[in-house]
Structures are given as C-alpha cells and as structure tokens.
Design a protein around this nucleic acid. Structure first.
Lengths: 159, 159
DNA sequence: AGCGTTCAATTGCGAACGCAAGTATTGAGC
DNA sequence: GCTCAATACTTGCGTTCGCAATTGAACGCT
C-alpha cells in the first residue's frame, strides 16, 4: 500500500530533482572533455553519431531535430557550425524543395571516429562506474517511458 | 552472461542518449507552464523550494549552487533575478564577510506556495502518468548513483 | 487554375549559464 | 604581524538555444 498520494508526489519531486542534477552533473563532466579534446559540443557529437548511422549518412533536418530534441532553430544553428567546420554538408532534396538534408562528409566521419574513442569511453566509464549493466538497462527502460522520450524507431517507416 | 563489453558500451550510449532526451523533453514541458503561469524558471522554483525547507529559510550561496548544480556565477545571476522580484533577500553573514545568505522573503514564500500547486502537480502527473510509484523510486535510486548527483543530506552538518 | 493549410527551415531577439579572471575575506604557517 | 593559499562571490565575455515571426514550398479542395 504505497499508493499514498502525498508520498507519491514527494517521490516524484525527488526523482525530478535528481533528473535535473544528473543531467547537469554528467553533462558538464562529459562536455568539458569533449569540447577541449575535439572541439565538439555534446549535441554536435550526438548529431554526427546520428548521421553516421543514417542510411546515406544523411537525414532531414526535421529528423535530426526529433532525435536530439532541439527545436528547428536549434538544428539550423547547430548544423551551421558543423557545416562551417566541413563536417556536414547541406544537400537539397530534389523531390521536395522545402527540405535540406544534413549530409555527413568524409571529414565528419573521420572526426567522429576520432572523437568517439574518448567520448564513448567516457560515457561508458561514467555509467559503468556507478551502475551495473542491468541497472543501465533499467535506467534506459524507465527514461524511455517518459513522455516524448521514446526513440520512435519504426515510427515513420516509409512515407 | 550479459557482460559483453561492446554490448555494455552500446547500452551505456543508449542510456546516455535517453537521459539527454528525457531532460530536454521534460524540461521544456514543465518550463513552459511554469514560466507562463508564474514567471519562474525551473531553477528559480528549485531554489525557492530549497530555501523554503532550509533552517531559517536561508542558505549560503555556495550551498544553493551545490544543490541546483549551478556554478557560482549562475547562482549570482539567478538570485539577482529573485532579489529583483523581491522573492529573496541578500543577507550578510556577521561572522564571515565573504558569505552572503540568500534569504527567502514572505513574498517569496507565498509565491512558492502559489506556484507549487500547478508545478508540483505537473511534475507528479508527468511521472505518475508514465511510471508506477515503484518505478519512480527505482529511477531515483539509479540517478542518485551517478557521480556528483547524490543529495549529500548529512554532508556538511555543523561547521 | 486558385486558395487555404500544413510543413520545412531560417532569422531576430532575448534568456540562461559556464568559464576565466578579478576582488575581498579568512585562516594557516612562520 | 606578515605572507600565502584557500574560499565566497562577482563580472565580462561568449555560447547555446528556445520562442515567435517569416519565407517558401507542397498538398488538398473546389
């Protein structure tokens, strides 16, 4: 009978606060290293990583936005930076003039590879250092249940 | 035998990505409402809430920083805003001229009370709508294990 | 064909915040 | 008592990013 409303509310408050703290803490840790060693922000890396796994190493900007949880304007500016750095190219879509693809360049691929070593390791260390593999899985499962977080892997299959 | 290194790394990557997404998603959701209805940012609320529970409804700025995971400069500017709004007062410490307390005013207390209704409800809804009470507990437990996240309840007891 | 709606993307604006440097205060070692 | 290191806090500067408004393209309806 843990279904006491006020207890649940307090627990929710606690969880929320911890989520904020966890994000701030981990973000700062990982961000500092990544930025210093490779000149990339966390979101830069996340986008590069995302593009590398995409079909032709390219994605619509809207899809990038959805995955990294940025607004359209955020994506525009993030990609602006990556384009300036030559890591990503802007490619027009022949069938729909509204869309502009973000296309990972060879330089971008290489840069990602280089940065991955350290960054992925840092992430793995951070989590494995505190949580067991099972706990990591559980954490993923729980976070994915929050509204708007699900990865939507087969959400927009064909058209 | 789930202890395959590369599997673990992939799982860690996934969890990290989900943490980023969860933060972005929930933050935007809650922030929009809180800001529109009460003119407070999430961190504003968090600080008000923290001060309300503190001994004399006041805390050293350093301690505020530790709890909300802001750098000193962040705290200065956040409190600047709350002071301008009359929700918090700056109180000098008689025994150590370096420290300035953040003291919650009556107006601040009231504002917090008013804002709490909606905001705490929104948080509870957000979590309870997606997770069971047990899952919320588990989430808290896991997040708290991450480096630098622990609440340090009895960390600086007396002096 | 013409028209309103929806969608992709960009831009102006402003807010939040970290980092690095600077100031003031305290305390420890001599 | 003086000096040096640590501490609490502030300020200048730059970055990231969301929101609102805007442009331009695509699509459905008549």
């Amino acid at each position: 009978m843990t279904s006491d409303t006020s207890t649940d509310t307090a627990a929710a408050l606690q969880a929320w606060s911890l989520l904020l703290r966890a994000h701030a803490s981990t973000t700062r840790l990982l961000s500092a290293a990544l930025e210093k060693e490779h000149g990339l922000t966390i979101n830069d890396f996340e986008v590069l990583h995302l593009l590398a796994q995409a079909p032709d190493r390219r994605l619509k900007r809207v899809e990038v936005a959805r995955h990294v949880m940025l607004t359209p304007s955020g994506v525009t500016r993030l990609l602006e930076g990556l384009e300036r750095a030559g890591l990503v190219e802007r490619v027009a879509c022949p069938t729909d003039l509204r869309v502009a693809y973000a296309q990972l360049t060879d330089a971008g691929t290489e840069r990602l590879t280089v940065a991955s070593c350290g960054h992925v390791g840092a992430i793995a260390d951070l989590l494995s250092g505190s949580l067991s593999p099972e706990e990591v899985e559980t954490l993923s499962t729980l976070l994915a249940k929050l509204p708007g977080v699900a990865q939507t892997p087969g959400c927009c299959p064909s058209a």
